[in-house]
Write a protein that binds this DNA or RNA. Structure first.
Lengths: 151, 151
DNA sequence: CCTTGACTTGAAGTTAACTTCAAGTTGTAG
DNA sequence: CTACAACTTGAAGTTAACTTCAAGTCAAGG
């Protein structure tokens, strides 16, 4: 097995060294140390980091990813089953996200047609209504429940 | 014209009073004051707040929304043209977002099929590659350029 | 008039996901 | 062997979008 320094891992993964160290404090990745106390990552970490970035794009937080990746080995390629489970649940998440955005788009499209000068008839302007119930929430990325995505 | 207290605006819009005050400090909404220094919002603010929430769901930041809403009157219904311009640019944004998520989903789907145990052949695992170039970025909601959305 | 819930302010706290910094130590090309 | 880039740490700073708090003041029903 050959090892990567944090700099190498950074350039290969496209993730800043500061972020990699941060991930390590969170337990998302792990390293051995040289005699001089520098980090050396097993090659499999490269894949792990890619997984993290992919997961983030799907909308998962680092905390959720931490849970999801806890089941994968730090220093080896995940099994086919591991990967299958992960990618399937992420796909579900993506499908849901896409559906929500599409619903919002359709509402908007109706609004473009109608001019939407009446508060009552417009779905966008009535957030309490059934249609928009799913996709409204607090801050930037509204945290949908994480547990079903992780297991 | 009749006026809403901050509490009324809050219950009607579903947005916390603290958030409404926060929006006001940012110039997103505006109020008059009573003799006793309490806020009174023109009825049109209700629509404005709905616009803000809808805009957030489309992925706009408050700063971007501030710019976009600067062109609308604070105390009256926006014109058909105003609304037309806004909803069209938001729709574009939504279309782009959906397209990006769909691209990611398609990659994932391929990966489920292939088992994806080889780093080289997998698009998800190669973020530098052409396909994923569009939809990768820094933190949670990667800030796509705002200017074209706002004008 | 009195009570009580709604309202006021500015400052500080919150969360995620990092980045930046200072003050050193290590690894390696030449 | 030396220079210099890469590495180390913990703490503090950053950003967005709010929320919470304290210490009051205001408004409206009875």
């Amino acid at each position: 097995m050959d090892w990567l320094s944090i700099g190498e891992l950074s350039t290969r993964s496209g993730v800043a060294t500061s972020a990699l160290r941060f991930y390590e404090t969170k337990g998302l990745i792990a390293s051995e140390r040289t005699d001089g106390n520098q980090r050396r990552y097993p090659r499999a970490t490269l894949r792990r980091v890619s997984l993290i970035r992919a997961g983030q794009e799907v909308g998962l937080t680092l905390a959720e990813l931490s849970e999801a990746l806890a089941k994968l080995p730090h220093d080896a390629t995940p099994t086919k089953a591991d990967w299958h489970r992960l990618s399937k649940s992420w796909r579900k998440r993506l499908d849901r996200q896409i559906a929500e955005l599409e619903a919002l788009r359709d509402e908007l499209t109706d609004c473009i047609g109608c001019g939407c000068l009446s508060l009552k008839s417009c779905a966008i302007f009535n957030p309490g209504d059934a249609a928009s119930e799913l996709g409204s929430g607090p801050r930037y990325l509204m945290g949908n429940s994480s547990s079903e995505v992780v297991r």
